[in-house]
């Protein structure tokens, strides 16, 4: 456990070394919120609610989706792919650490940094300067757990994508496809409520909405009760377990390829 903690601390420190880059990250995220504000203002020009969502709800939803994006973007797929194609994976495999948890702990540092330095300040700016409101209900109590589970799901997907590098060199294409599918079908760009009803029914069966739509529901849906929240968390837990197991299964198969072909 201690060695994993050292990895977390290391990745956190590494980011702090970059001075100006940090300021640009903050500015970038603020500007993004502003652009979204303009876009959604013009979408809501002249109407009160669309598909049952008020402007405030929809704006908070997509703006905070941006914050969640910075948190759950692990880059683990690129990282793992780089380790595999460069051959340095051999060095990872001889370490007495579990491969999946090794990469997980490396990304936790980034996640913590992005949460504290980007997601949280963006959310505060949103509440203080844009006059946006979140639902002050039980949903907020479940939010921390919801966010952590969202991060784990995102990592588990990135991990699986990264492992495809055992079979093909084209991580760019696969990763971009994953990226677009994840953001489009999860509510990261448009609230799930805006999709046609038939589409919504399908999207709710996929893991992507568990990354964005579920935590954002906790923040924006009025009158959530404890049972509903537990249901949401339950859905996330199921996806975490399934995707982590899938990743481990794929690794066992893929590393056999490595043993045979010699990398």
């Amino acid at each position: 456990m201690k060695s994993y903690f050292a990895l977390v601390r290391g990745s956190f420190m590494a980011i702090m070394m970059y001075r100006l880059s940090f300021f640009f990250t903050v500015i970038g995220n603020l500007l993004y919120i502003v652009l979204l504000y303009f876009l959604w203002s013009s979408i809501y020009r002249g109407v009160e609610t669309i598909r049952g969502m008020s402007f405030n709800q929809a704006f908070v939803y997509v703006a905070l989706a941006g914050s969640i994006f910075t948190m759950v973007k692990t880059w683990a797929d690129w990282e793992i792919s780089w380790h595999i194609t460069s051959g340095s994976i051999i060095m990872d495999l001889v370490k007495p650490l579990d491969f999946q948890f090794y990469f997980l702990s490396q990304t936790v540092g980034f996640m913590a940094f992005n949460f504290i330095m980007i997601a949280l300040p963006s959310a505060l700016v949103l509440l203080l300067f844009f006059g946006a409101d979140v639902e002050m209900g039980v949903g907020l109590l479940f939010l921390p757990a919801g966010l952590i589970l969202a991060f784990l799901i995102s990592f588990a997907i990135d991990y699986i994508i990264g492992l495809t590098s055992f079979y093909t060199e084209s991580i760019w294409g696969i990763s971009m496809t994953k990226e677009i599918i994840t953001t489009l079908l999860s509510g990261a760009l448009v609230p799930l409520q805006f999709f046609p009803d038939a589409a919504q029914r399908i999207l709710r069966l996929l893991p992507f909405q568990a990354i964005y739509h579920i935590p954002l529901t906790m923040l924006t849906a009025p009158n959530l009760d404890v049972r509903a929240c537990l249901g949401l968390l339950g859905t996330q837990v199921v996806w975490v377990v399934l995707l982590f197991l899938a990743g481990r299964l794929l690794f066992t198969r893929a590393s056999r390829v490595l043993m045979v072909s010699g990398g």
Binding site: T168, E169, S170, W172, G173, I174, S175, M176, T177, I180, I181
Partner: peptide, 13 residues
């Protein structure tokens, strides 16, 4: 293979 997979990624993007 890389060319085609990347092209598919580009279509999505």
């Amino acid at each position: 293979a890389d060319f085609w997979i990347s092209s598919v990624g580009m279509v999505f993007t």
